[in-house]
Design a protein around this nucleic acid. Structure first.
Lengths: 249, 249
DNA sequence: GGCGGCGTTCCACTCAGCGGTACGCTCTTT
DNA sequence: AAAGAGCGTACCGCTGAGTGGAACGCCGCC
């Protein structure tokens, strides 16, 4: 899978063997997932423990707090998170629904923050997790402001159908993207998860042409009307955009 | 400084060369901080870029989004964060002051979350950042529930004086710790930063003897009365504690 | 009591990694 | 303009860190 011919490659293969859902993996499982020789995996994992990227428990290995800490040193994501927090708070307080902040990475969204209360709609998104661009509200606004090339790259590739409502027709999706640029918001209606609705707005760079991130509000079908939160989401996104512009000349 | 005799050690030396404040470091600076040979540093950094842990810009290297993502896969911190979020939200909404969630790592607190509004008190804490145990409210509650050995280890070591109000007398500090266990909250009054007050409560494991994390509310001298938020902080912490107990038997 | 899967240890081979050296570039400085 | 300092990049022969196959002891399960 990965090029694990170098030591570093092996180490990363082990670290990346942990999926979003795994908490602790035994050595044998690491060997299976990485394809490394047992002896090698054992030693490299041991080194990683020594360097505080892995914790060793009775039942196997686990990604450690040191890695968590290191990850939060990533400058762009961290400052984005810090600058965004007040706006996300405002948005949450106004809506009391799940609020997301996400950036684009390749053909997917990576969620930088997810905040919600006790009664939040169950959604598959997780902080630090990924979702496809084409079936999420944030994904759509990010895609709408991506370069023409990247846009067509996504649209021409086969679009994964997540639910019966997932938009997999490139034409319809492109129309939604155009609409997103015109109105400043994009919607998702049970396209990634049944029972989940979502509105998102783009956080634009000073040039007004590229999207740095996206902010969304998500809620369950029934009580939740995404349209009624469009203004709030747009306000939060543009507010964050201009704050970023002020600090990053 | 670090044992960088192995490849992995060198790679980590480079990654950890990034302080909390650095966003982009040129190769020469990495060489200076790590003490690696220029050729070696260049190659290892290149490998790290290839493995998406570093980004290369015109002005140097930067910790990448891939690292951010990987860090958020760390199971314990991530689930703690996710389970805690609703309680932190409640707390913020009730107080409208800066809310922290922190865990202990060695003799320091690591902040897992920091949420606040636009008018938050300026504090040195950052998400993913560290602070000494003895001069922060969360640090005190965590230390109060640490093992006897660890407690004395911290108390006997010289305590860094951060401000004129920092408690550096081991006796006084120990009394504060005892008081924290009795009352369920600890305070910090301008002990880490001038103008900053703080209340914290411990998130206890089911056994009621060990602290998993700490929650705090911080605000500026003047308008902010830490005592008046003691109950709210305690409620959030115990609420989170029992929720964690339910999910982690 | 035999069997399969697990974590751990050992060891001789070899190629990945090493770091000194050298080059070209862009800024300052004189 | 010339000289210099500091930077990023590229090259290359030596060597020991890293490799992975094999072997061992340990459970828990049929």
């Amino acid at each position: 899978m990965e090029d694990s011919d170098t030591v570093l490659g092996k180490a990363l293969a082990i670290l990346r063997a942990f999926g979003p859902a795994d908490s602790v993996l035994p050595l044998a499982e690491l060997v299976r997932r990485t394809g490394l020789a047992k002896g090698t995996a054992h030693r490299v994992a041991g080194d990683l423990v020594h360097h505080r990227l892995l914790d060793k428990t009775d039942h196997g290995y686990r990604l450690s707090g040191g890695l968590f800490e290191l990850g939060l040193r990533a400058a762009t994501e961290r400052t984005l998170l810090e600058m965004a927090m007040p706006f996300l708070q405002d948005l949450y307080e106004r809506t009391h629904e799940t609020v997301h902040l996400g950036v684009r990475e390749g053909h997917e969204v990576v969620y930088v923050a997810k905040i919600g209360g006790h009664r939040q709609a169950s959604s598959p998104s997780r902080t630090g997790g990924r979702m496809p661009l084409h079936c999420t509200a944030i994904g759509k606004v990010l895609l709408a402001y991506a370069s023409e090339d990247e846009q067509t790259a996504v649209l021409t590739a086969p679009l994964e159908r997540r639910t019966a409502h997932t938009v997999i027709a490139p034409g319809l999706l492109r129309r939604q993207l155009v609409n997103a640029v015109e109105t400043g918001v994009a919607y998702e209606r049970e396209e990634s998860t049944l029972g989940l609705l979502c509105v998102a707005a783009p956080v634009l760079a000073p040039d007004g042409l590229t999207a740095i991130a996206g902010i969304s509000v998500a809620g369950p079908t029934g009580r939740f009307r995404p349209e009624s939160h469009a203004n709030a989401v747009r306000a939060a996104a543009t507010g964050l955009g201009s704050t970023l512009a002020r600090r990053r000349p």
